[in-house]
Design a protein around this nucleic acid. Structure first.
Lengths: 234, 234
DNA sequence: TGTATTTTTCTTGTCGACAAGAAAATCAGA
DNA sequence: TCTGATTTTCTTGTCGACAAGAAAAATACA
């Protein structure tokens, strides 16, 4: 299936291969195009991208260090499974980072940050309108990432990006289960958050960030309990 | 200098090379044995460890993804500089994580966690007694990492470990400047934290974690302002 | 037929070599 | 002597090939 699609027969610039593979694999993993647990074959990837195994391997090492794929020594490498048991911990961290980054954005944002945030919100809104689930998820993450960037704390921003990435897989699961129908509510909540940031209202930003996070948590939580009833018994 | 010291002439198990190089380089960077900004030569490392450049390269990729080294494309790779300008953001994140992890440990710790934490505290205390600055720094980080582990939130724990790692370099700078004299106070504060965790006193844990963090921040802050007066003018 | 053992196959980990890109060194011209 | 172009050198990025480890397949034996 992959050999019929040589990703890029064009000449690539020296050093660009790793980034290309990394970005693409990362997106495919986060969009659930590569299912959790599915095997990753280095030689197949090398053939698909028309390059040797060395740059492929470096991209895989990066993905491993981000926890997106796992390797059994001397054996297989596969897409990491979503950690359902650690989900509670994940939501805790996510909500806290929603709060912290939104707060900081209200404090430290500059005019150009607001433009950037609004641009991402526009993209998100477009994605919602056109019912493009994958775009919705990606642009939503980008929106919140832009807020974190406006908060001017690289440590929080990096951590938050990581959480958002992991969350993209869960959100994908969520939307899939609802046949890609959309919660329009998110768009409105985003607007409120932007308003609070623009007004430099730290308390409102904190409160809205918390509410937004908890709302998502609650929705995904509903999905999971439903799934657990159907699939597994704990 | 390096070629006189072939790190390991023994046979290594297949797959162990990367971890060996990674662990050693990481420690050398965090202990400031490799100065920030100093160049890293792949072939020299390959010679030093008696292996080819491939596993060296994978270790370097991991270190890059952790932000400990940086690479200029097609040119040099070097140890990352300590981000003094972003220090304020760092301290914010560190104090918050001190609070959160200590809180969670008070809530969720199990008996074996306490044993583990106390063991690390004993090591830290030994290091303080024997005036071993490097050991103090490493065992201090391990102590707090153990607390985070007891909090049962892998996301916080991972983030915190990363912050503690970055902090090891600053602490090293700090102790160096005081000729490795020690703040005995840390030992006592650690004991208080342990007591609060053992008593499952969440509020006390939060407060002590915050105070402990801010105390360290203040000390390092003093060091930096002193340095800034001496070295650079901003 | 079922189980233990050997053989094969397949994937990963490592290696040595080569090519490209950039800096340093050399050289030419004024 | 200084400046600009050219050559050399040095480091990194990529490649193809080989070896080791483990699973799967095949074989032998009861």
């Amino acid at each position: 299936m992959a050999d019929s699609d040589p990703e890029q027969t064009l000449e690539r610039k020296r050093g660009s291969g790793v980034k290309l593979v990394y970005d693409l694999l990362r997106d495919e993993i986060l969009d659930l195009k590569l299912a959790p647990g599915s095997a990753i074959d280095e030689v197949a990837l090398a053939a698909r991208f028309g390059m040797s195994r060395t740059p492929i391997r470096e991209a895989l090492v990066r993905l491993v260090s981000e926890g997106l794929i796992e390797t059994l020594p001397n054996r297989s490498t596969m897409v990491s499974n979503i950690d359902f048991l650690g989900m509670h911990a994940y939501f805790d961290a996510l909500v806290l980072m929603y709060r912290v980054t939104t707060r900081l954005a209200a404090q430290h944002h500059r005019p150009e940050d607001l433009e950037n945030i609004r641009a991402h919100q526009a993209e998100f809104s477009d994605a919602v309108r056109s019912q493009d689930a994958l775009a919705m998820i990606a642009t939503n993450a980008a929106f919140h990432s832009a807020i974190a960037a406006a908060g001017r704390n690289a440590y929080y921003a990096g951590f938050f990006d990581r959480l958002l990435g992991e969350g993209r897989r869960m959100l994908r699961l969520y939307y899939q289960s609802y046949e890609d129908r959309l919660p329009n509510r998110f768009v409105d909540e985003h607007e409120e958050i932007i308003a609070a940031i623009a007004a430099r209202d730290v308390d409102a930003a904190d409160r809205l960030g918390k509410a937004h996070g908890e709302q998502i948590v609650e929705q995904i939580g509903r999905l999971l309990t439903r799934h657990e009833r159907q699939d597994i018994e704990l």
